[in-house]
Each structure stands twice: as structure tokens, then as C-alpha cells.
């Protein structure tokens, strides 16, 4: 009370900020806590074999993934994912720039590309097994053959949309060749390129998992299917949770990267909207 009378404004401000932080915590945690609680309650009271209680899943999770299995199953999967995603990104952006810069080349390839990108990537898994066996190169190939299209097509769009006034400005100031590509074309196409990469990332995770589920002797997808087939249900759930976490973490990392690359773009858009 006395503190309130001496410094009412700071006191109430501190109080308000504490209250705001409290509300925030409640906003973030309430629903997840409720959902987990609900699941715990229903799984404890159900005799379904398929829904183990959260503590069983947690125990299986710790036991499984805090062991050498992490190195045997998870790391190889992530390595394939990274390799496939990186190759798709380089290939997609490279070819996209080529196609985007030339109207004729684009017209030549457009119908073929339209068809190739419409093929649902998972059907390439059996094909790649035929072509490349069931080793790592097959999985990377599967990821690349599915992920390259969104990157490629978005890059083409981005490159085509380079502002003509900006292109003229660059020409006037003698900005040509690779510098032009680096400071003008790729940068101004970066919002579309990032959008393509974001799609490719989601697709890459799916393709990694199903290529391992379909035919493999190691990897996260393989492990999950193994658990399911041997009815190791808590372990299966632990695998699903890990897969969910991988998806969440990768997408968060991507958003961070995107924030860095596209900070200017967000600001520009906000400025345009404000006007």
C-alpha cells in the first residue's frame, strides 16, 4: 500500500507487466495442459491397448532416443533429409533462375514441368527403389525428385517478377553478370524462393519418412513401422512424438532463417500497407 502511494505509476506498471506475462503463460500452456490431461485421463480409463498413458510414452521416449538408437536411426534420417533438401534447393534455384530469365526456354519446358510437378512425389518411392536400390542414395533421390518442383516453380515466378524499374536502374549503374544475379535477381526473388523452400521442407520430411517406411533397414520411419508391426505401442508413440518434434523444430529453424533473409520484405510490406 505504502509503495503504491509513493510510486503509483511504476508500481502499477510493473504489476501490469507481470499480469501480462502471466496471461501470456496461461495462453501458451492452458490448452496443451488440458489436452494432455484429457488424453491421460481417457487413456488411463480406457482398456484400449493402442493408447498408452503419457508416462509410459515418456518413459519409452527417454529409453529409446537417449540411447545409441538416436545415432543409429535418427541421425541418418536427418542426414538424408538435409542432403535431399540441400540438393533440391540448389538445383531448384539454379534451374529456376535459368528458366525465369528466358521466356523461350520457359515456354519450351512449361507443359513438361506442369506434368512433372503434378506427380505426387510419394509414387516416386517405388520407382527410385527400382532405379537405385534401397540405400541412402535412393532416399536422397526420392527427396530431391519430390522437393525440387516447388523450389523451381517458385524461383521462376520470383525471377520473372523482378521489377523492371529496378532492372533498368541496375543496368544504368553497370551492375551486370553475377553481381546482378546476386544483388538483384536472387534477392528480389527471395520471398518466392523462401516460400518454395518452406513447402519443400515439409515435403522433404514426408518423403524421408515414407521412403524409410516403404523400404529400409534403418531410420526413424523404419523404426516407427517396426514398433507398430511388433506391437511395441509405447515405443511407436515415442517415435511419433519424436517425428512431430523433428517437424516442429525444423519448421521453427526455418522460420528463424526466413526472418533473417526476409526481414526487409516484411518491413516493406508493412510500410506499403501503412501508406
Amino acid at each position: 500500500m505504502s509503495s503504491q502511494s509513493t510510486a503509483p505509476s511504476t508500481g502499477s506498471r510493473a504489476g501490469a507487466s507481470v499480469r501480462r506475462a502471466g496471461t501470456k503463460v496461461v495462453h501458451v500452456l492452458l490448452l496443451p495442459a488440458l489436452l494432455i490431461g484429457l488424453y491421460a485421463y481417457s487413456s488411463a480409463n480406457s482398456d484400449s491397448y493402442y493408447t498408452p498413458t503419457p508416462d509410459l510414452i515418456a518413459a519409452a521416449f527417454v529409453e529409446l532416443w537417449f540411447s545409441e538408437r538416436f545415432f543409429a536411426d535418427v541421425l541418418p534420417s536427418l542426414a538424408r533429409l538435409a542432403a535431399g533438401f540441400a540438393v533440391s534447393a540448389v538445383l531448384g534455384v539454379g534451374l529456376g533462375v535459368l528458366l525465369g530469365l528466358s521466356t523461350r526456354v520457359r515456354a519450351l519446358f512449361e507443359p513438361v514441368l506442369e506434368f512433372l510437378r503434378a506427380i505426387p512425389p510419394p509414387v516416386l518411392v517405388p520407382l527410385m527403389i527400382l532405379l537405385a536400390g534401397i540405400d541412402d542414395s535412393m532416399k536422397v533421390l526420392v527427396i530431391v525428385s519430390g522437393c525440387v518442383w516447388p523450389v523451381l516453380l517458385n524461383t521462376v515466378e520470383g525471377v520473372r517478377a523482378v521489377d523492371p524499374v529496378l532492372a533498368d536502374t541496375a543496368r544504368c549503374y553497370g551492375i551486370t553478370g553475377t553481381t546482378r544475379l546476386r544483388v538483384l535477381v536472387l534477392r528480389s526473388a527471395s520471398p518466392q524462393i523462401m516460400a518454395g523452400l518452406r513447402l519443400a521442407l515439409a515435403l522433404a520430411i514426408i518423403l524421408m519418412v515414407i521412403s524409410e517406411m516403404f523400404a529400409s533397414s534403418s531410420g526413424l520411419g523404419f523404426a516407427i513401422v517396426q514398433f507398430q508391426r511388433t506391437f511395441a505401442i509405447p515405443e511407436m508413440w515415442a517415435g511419433m512424438v519424436l517425428l512431430g518434434l523433428v517437424g516442429f523444430v525444423l519448421s521453427t529453424l526455418f522460420e528463424l532463417a526466413e526472418g533473417r533473409v526476409l526481414g526487409w520484405y516484411r518491413g516493406l510490406r508493412a510500410a506499403n500497407r501503412g501508406e
Binding site: Y50, A202, I205, I206, V209, I210, M213, G221, I224, V225, F227, Q228, M236, G239, M240, L243, G244, G247, F248, L250, S251, T252
Partner: peptide
């Protein structure tokens, strides 16, 4: 939940 790949639900 959004970024969780739906293929994670396959075993279930």
C-alpha cells in the same frame, strides 16, 4: 501441431 508431418500418424 501444424508442422507435425501427417505421415507420423501412419502407424496409428
Amino acid at each position: 501441431l501444424r508442422p507435425i508431418p501427417s505421415v507420423a500418424l501412419i502407424p496409428l
